[in-house]
Every structure is written in structure tokens, then in C-alpha cells.
């Protein structure tokens, strides 16, 4: 009888313990610069959408938060974790782009200015609710209470002084049409947003073109960076993420270009063999299926001519 009581007590403890808890551990990667590293997996009910890298910079006067994560709950846990590192006030949240895994934690920072490129805000107005709905479908109850909260400030490219620290802001477009990259000049940490994926297949909904993306990578690589925080994947202190991005984008472009020239169907292209050198790039098959849907129509049209009479 005593055993049964103990088991029952344990069971009810398990039920009452919150199973949907993000384990966000801030990791210091440079003086005043902190990273929350997510996994390189896809969205799932198991990970609550914590597949993304977010971070924050502690300046003399307060904290600059970079991206707010995939859900309200994530944003709240992130804010608590920041408060354990510093008691300085939050000065600003900066969003790298409008994708749901980067912005749906905004509600946790509703009392702080939330800044983004004007293009990011426009895309969020246009697509935010649909993307949030899809996140509920993908990760379920982790999303409870999450709604789109729009940015309150516009960012422009150039040098921005915040709390005695200089941030170089770049307004690029290769991933979504409005992509912010942030270089912390003092530490040399480059928050590349989703312009850089590393060891995780890049995603292409909304890319203006792969050529645009490649040009953005050139700009980023020429900055005086010391470390790269990709939007997804591990932190790097060498140029390996740039090399992998170029290689992967070039491969993707080649697959679709030659496919269009040979009259390949989408269903044939999505079965293309993934080169051995991308074996370590997570989700490459899944993202190839998505990218063919996003981009192949443009390649097809370029390979065809008007034939109506």
C-alpha cells in the first residue's frame, strides 16, 4: 500500500512538473557576448521549436537581445536566463529577419523597444499570422499564448552606438528579402542570422535568388569578424561556415539549373543524390524537397520559351 502511494505521488509530481520547459543555458562566447544555441533539427513537439540560435550583448548601459525565439514561452525563459547573467536593463531587441523561430518570443519583451529592418516588419505583417499558425501545428502546446508582436522601431544599415558599444548593421536580403546581420565591432562576433546556416541545410522560402544570397555571403565574409554565430548550427571561429554555404548554394543551383535544361520533373529532382560531402549537413533531403518547391519554377521558366500560336 505504501508503495502504491509513493508511486501515485511520483506520477502526480510528473504530471504537475511542467514538461514543456525550454532548457536555455546562456554561453559566453566573448566579452559581454552570450549565445543560446539551439539544435540543428526540424521543428517538433519534442523540441518546442528550439532549433535556433539567439543571443545577447551586455553593454555598459544595458542589454541588446538578438532574436526572441520560436514562442512566447521561449522568450520568457530567455529573459529569465538573461536576468541571471546581468541585472542591467534591456535596451533593445533586434530581429534578424521575420521567420517564426526568430521572432515569436517578442511578447516576452513587449516593454522593450523591438527593432527590425522595415522590410522585416512588412513581411511579418504579411506572413506572421500564417507562420504562427503553422508553428502551432508543428510544435503544439509549446506555442500556447503565442501571437505575433510587431517591431516598434526601424533599423537602418550602418554603425549603431548602443550603451557604449558599436554595432555594425548590414541590411541584406539573400535569405528572406530582408535580412539583418549584426557585427559587434569590439568583440568581432558576427550574428549572421539565417544568411549563414552551418551543419544544417539552409532554407529558401522567400529568397530573392541564390545569386543574391551568394553576394551577401561575400559581403559578410569581408567584415572583420572573429567568430560567426550562424542562425542555425554551431558557433565557428574560422571561415568553414562560409565555405559550406557557398558549396551548398552552388550545388543547389546546379541541380536545378541542369534539371531545368534536361526537362526534369520536380518529383525527379527531389530524389537527387545528396553529395557525400554534405553528409554532416542535417536535414538536407528535407530542405531539398522544400527548395525545389520554392525555386524550381523560376529555373523551369528560364529554360522554356513562348510556344503559343
Amino acid at each position: 500500500m505504501r508503495w502504491i502511494l509513493i508511486l501515485a505521488a511520483l506520477a502526480s509530481a510528473c504530471v504537475h512538473a511542467n514538461p514543456l520547459a525550454y532548457d536555455l543555458q546562456p554561453r559566453q562566447i566573448a566579452d559581454g557576448v552570450w549565445l543560446f544555441e539551439g539544435s540543428t533539427d526540424n521543428f517538433s513537439q519534442a523540441n518546442g521549436g528550439n532549433i535556433v540560435n539567439t543571443g545577447f550583448i551586455v553593454t555598459d548601459k544595458g542589454v541588446v537581445v538578438i532574436d526572441s525565439g520560436p514562442s512566447r514561452r521561449y522568450g520568457e525563459v530567455m529573459r529569465q536566463a538573461i536576468a541571471r547573467v546581468t541585472d542591467k536593463p534591456l535596451l533593445k531587441v533586434m530581429l534578424t529577419h521575420h521567420h517564426p523561430d526568430h521572432v515569436l518570443g517578442n511578447q516576452a519583451f513587449s516593454d522593450v523597444p523591438i527593432a527590425a529592418l522595415p522590410g522585416t516588419t512588412a513581411l511579418l505583417v504579411e506572413q506572421g499570422d500564417t507562420m504562427a499558425e503553422n508553428m502551432y501545428r508543428l510544435v503544439g502546446d509549446w506555442m500556447r499564448g503565442t501571437e505575433v508582436l510587431l517591431p516598434t522601431e526601424s533599423l537602418e544599415p550602418g554603425m549603431l552606438e548602443v550603451g557604449g558599444r558599436t554595432l555594425q548593421l548590414l541590411a541584406l536580403s539573400g535569405h528572406t528579402g530582408a535580412d539583418l546581420a549584426i557585427l559587434d565591432v569590439q568583440s568581432g562576433v558576427l550574428f549572421a542570422g539565417d544568411l549563414v546556416f552551418y551543419q544544417r541545410a539552409l532554407t529558401t522560402p522567400g529568397t530573392p535568388s541564390l545569386a543574391t544570397w551568394l553576394a551577401d555571403l561575400d559581403q559578410l565574409q569581408h567584415l572583420p569578424w572573429k567568430q560567426i554565430v550562424p542562425g542555425h548550427g554551431p558557433l565557428a571561429s574560422d571561415a568553414a561556415p562560409f565555405a559550406q554555404m557557398r558549396d551548398y548554394l552552388g550545388w543547389l543551383d546546379g541541380v536545378m539549373r541542369s534539371g531545368a535544361e534536361q526537362g526534369a520533373e520536380m518529383n525527379e529532382l527531389i530524389r537527387t543524390a545528396i553529395p557525400e560531402r554534405f553528409a554532416g549537413v542535417n536535414l538536407s533531403r528535407y530542405e531539398l524537397i522544400r527548395s525545389v518547391s520554392h525555386l524550381y519554377p523560376r529555373y523551369e521558366q528560364a529554360a522554356m520559351q513562348r510556344v503559343d500560336r
Binding site: Q262, G263, Q301, A303, M304, Q305, R306, V307, D308
Partner: peptide
Amino acid sequence: LGEVLGKRFVLADANRLRVQ
């Protein structure tokens, strides 16, 4: 309306006609 983009491709066992 009714504009057609198209091309003929030579496959191993057939000619593929693709149109949009």
C-alpha cells in the same frame, strides 16, 4: 491568358513536352 511557355526535351525513351 492562354500564353504558353514550353519546350521539348529528349529523354532516353521519349520526347518530353513540358508546358506551362
